[in-house]
Write a protein that binds this DNA or RNA. Sequence first.
DNA 1: CCGATGAGAATGAACGTTCGCACTCTTTAT
DNA 2: ATAAAGAGTGCGAACGTTCATTCTCATCGG
Lengths: 233, 233
Amino acid sequence: MEYGSDIAVETPQGLRPDAPSRYERREAQVARILEGARLCFLKSGFQGASMGDICAAAGMSPGALYRYFPSKESLIEAICAADKEADAKILGQMVNAPSIIDGMTTGLLSHAQQLHESGMAPLFAEIYAEAMRNPAMKQILDDSMCEVTEVIGAALHNAVKSGEINPVLPLEQLVPIMMAMGHGLVTEDLPRIGIPIQTMEPAVRAMIVGMLRPREKYAEASPSSQVQKTLVT
Amino acid sequence: MEYGSDIAVETPQGLRPDAPSRYERREAQVARILEGARLCFLKSGFQGASMGDICAAAGMSPGALYRYFPSKESLIEAICAADKEADAKILGQMVNAPSIIDGMTTGLLSHAQQLHESGMAPLFAEIYAEAMRNPAMKQILDDSMCEVTEVIGAALHNAVKSGEINPVLPLEQLVPIMMAMGHGLVTEDLPRIGIPIQTMEPAVRAMIVGMLRPREKYAEASPSSQVQKTLVT
DNA sequence: CCGATGAGAATGAACGTTCGCACTCTTTAT
DNA sequence: ATAAAGAGTGCGAACGTTCATTCTCATCGG
């Protein structure tokens, strides 16, 4: 059951630096497998998709596929990890915006948009369900969650210190709650039921403003939904 | 593949009204099976739990179990339907409260509480994931979702008419968005990571208030987080 | 005695994974 | 330059297991 963890290919430095074929080909094959696996998992779920299905989708025999991934589980983990990396990118947008309200609003909406366009929303649900019982998957998810919590928490902490916002709750509690709500927003795939992402902007902003209670000069923000805070907790 | 849909037991009227043993015994067996199935699905997921596991959990042989449920799929559907019924109960609380803000706030929190206490949160994730690919499951979920949307939508509509609230968005858009956020809140199982349900109260209220923008006399509400609306969309 | 119920072995399919073999490059030896 | 060796890669049959479901037979209440 214990394979060496050579899922990822060796670094190119292991070969002549100008030799393209071997290393690049291997990377391309890995990509093909992951893409096929993603499609199958999307259609049938982690447990429902068979290795046969995945082989077919990747245009490859089982023998060949197993040269790249030692088990079905390793495939699932690779897919999850890739998904979490995509999340991290979005995160950057959120915390680097000049206004924390704008950053979080557009960050959440981009996340939803990306998930919808890439058709990954169902996979998200799958990952969550799998994490509920598979400890290895749980770890991947928790690590990612932890990292996100810290980065957002730090950004909010700065905003609090500079007097930009005055949250309804201590940050340790507020951040997970906002993330949970955001998680619901992006997994529900609202565009599918006729609610375009852009429509959600005022609602998302209202939620964030409601929870962060920015001082007036920060709260004006964009299109609609003006709210001003009146009291400190 | 096409069995008669006699998943649920025949109504008691089909037997002598004073005959307890047959009908009651059958109902008890069904309950035992469903409880065992629930535990197994919780632990291993719909696809991961085997009929053998479920038989063992229900203290029953496969031959016996199949006298009550014609397939594994019918078991899954029964579990989902039971779950959706539990949701409907919570819904009553929400719309019958004198203040729509209070009703929705406490309704959401009760839902989260119940899901956490009954340990059903992981099943929720499982149901969602399954619905993403199984059309029959999708139907069950959509029907429930549709019903909830209507009831909440109607309650909000009344509140708008009476001038109690002035939502940031048209209701057809707002309701699904709020439900999505609520869904995220209850499935994330925040108590598990150290955030007790009651802590979430101000945050949930802030979200709801932010989105519904009640007039001042309704907005005062409980503990914290006072927000007042200033403009119409 | 009959229909409902239960146990548990049996069945056939599907699954994840492995194996043996063939083929193709790349490197090394001649 | 050519041959031999070796590693990487691919195929698809085969293996052992597990699974959902069915079958057969026994039991029991009415």
